[in-house]
Design a protein around this nucleic acid. Structure first.
Lengths: 99, 99
DNA sequence: CCGCATCCGAAGCGATACTG
DNA sequence: CAGTATCGCTTCGGATGCGG
């Protein structure tokens, strides 16, 4: 989902994806990009240059998923604080039960 | 996501969720329900009966995510065959490269 | 010089057995 | 019925090496 969202503005390089999605491991990024490419949501373009460059972009199929993903991202951003509050309250309640 | 979608029609029992989501393990179902409850998306209601009964339902916060989740489910159902085709083509190409 | 395959210890999962 | 505790195996993250 985060990868799809990051590709919304056009082609993005591998290292730019890694920077745009903090916390993702190199392994997971490579693996997920491979799955997305395999499923036809993302296109991979390698340029035979020095230094080497690989760009990933959304296909038509990938773009058809974009609006839903952006909806989800907006929902997540809007409710993030509220959800955090619920989690803190829940954890406090759980800690109280444990003590 | 599948849990949210399953709860769209009203309260659902634990075992009904397990039946509605084939392939999910007991562990993952319990763990995910706990996370959703902790985040305030799902409410857990236990009835002191024999046999015991526990119902899970969407909160207001959970319901606010429902439309996006249903969009995603619809997209998934619509594009499923197309995506499978891409995967098969990709695998055939990969196998050819390997051989 | 970037992108990514590979190796290793650690964490997570699914299946099973068991409890209130 | 609705979970929790345990075990074996898969998968993950981080470090390293190499092809293009």
């Amino acid at each position: 989902m985060l990868i799809i969202g990051t590709l919304s503005d056009g082609p993005v390089r591998y290292s730019e994806l890694a920077d745009a999605i903090p916390g993702i491991s190199q392994r997971m990024l490579t693996l997920t990009l491979k799955q997305l490419t395999r499923s036809g949501l993302v296109a991979r373009t390698a340029y035979a240059e020095v230094p080497p460059r690989v760009e990933y972009s959304l296909t038509g199929l990938g773009t058809s998923l974009l609006s839903t993903v952006l909806d989800l991202a907006a929902w997540s951003a809007d409710r993030h604080t509220e959800i955090r509050g619920h989690q803190r309250a829940y954890d406090a309640r759980t800690a109280a039960d444990a003590g």
